[in-house]
């Protein structure tokens, strides 16, 4: 599904924030991503969802060499990736429902189905009473849930979530993780960047850990991690 070989990333002329990253995520896998603040979790995810190109190294995504992708092949690739951005990236002028509907509209889905689908998912994340609220009138945790609903709405093949539970309590956090878990059961490959150790411990998934720009893959509930 995803393969990194000796990937390095630097912003502009700055130092390499990611160095010699090599790993493979098999299709249908579920990984947590950990690392202290500034370790490069968001940067690694950006490489995965094609927001940045690596400074060096080889990235293979859906069996395609990302460096060789043509501009007009990108949308098709990106539509198979659901992303929860760390800053949510909701469109302020659109209602919660319309924000969630974006991926479906881009895919040209039927308008009646779109409304039904989006209503259902927003109810699931506990926003059934805020379907038509704009993001600026929602709390941080509510916005985060809209962002999560949007990332899973079209059942992506790959789901990348950057701190998806950073703004909610553990109860809602669990509920949201079950959403990803459901998606995972349907065959989606999932990567979740998080600082929340308590949540990680509740699920039996391996983690990729970033430290000093380097990556370590640790098995599920590894004792290596303190």
């Amino acid at each position: 599904m995803i393969r990194f070989e000796n990937v390095g990333l630097r912003y502009g002329t700055g130092p390499e924030v990611l160095r010699d990253i090599s790993f493979t995520l098999p299709p249908g896998s579920f990984h947590f991503m950990t690392g202290s603040s500034g370790a490069g979790k968001s940067s690694l995810l950006k490489l995965m969802y094609l927001a940045h190109r690596p400074s060096r190294g080889l990235i293979t995504l859906f069996d395609r060499d990302v460096a060789l992708l043509k501009r007009d092949e990108m949308p098709e690739m990106r539509r198979q990736i659901g992303v929860v951005f760390q800053d949510f990236a909701l469109l302020d002028h659109l209602s919660a429902l319309d924000n969630v509907a974006l991926p479906l509209r881009m895919a040209g889905a039927d308008e009646g189905d779109i409304v039904e689908h989006c209503t259902e998912i927003l109810r699931w994340v506990g926003l059934g009473n805020h379907l038509h609220a704009t993001p600026s009138t929602l709390s941080g945790g509510q916005q985060q849930r809209v962002a999560i609903a949007r990332s899973v709405i079209n059942r992506p093949r790959l789901l990348l979530a950057d701190e998806p539970t950073g703004n909610v309590d553990d109860g809602i956090g669990m509920r949201l993780l079950y959403l990803f878990e459901e998606l995972h059961k349907l065959g989606t490959t999932v990567v979740i960047a998080t600082h929340n150790e308590a949540l990680i411990r509740r699920f039996d998934h391996p983690r990729i850990h970033l430290e000093n720009g380097r990556l370590h893959v640790l098995p599920a509930n590894s004792a290596q991690w303190v």
């Binding site: 969802y49 094609l50 927001a51 007009d72 990108m74 949308p75 098709e76 690739m77 990106r78 539509r79 198979q80 990736i81 992303v83 990236a89 469109l91 974006l102 991926p103 881009m106 895919a107």
Partner: peptide, 15 residues
Amino acid sequence: HVVELLHLMGATDRY
């Protein structure tokens, strides 16, 4: 920034 976001979500230039 909105256009970039739409692109990241898979919007084509035509869209």
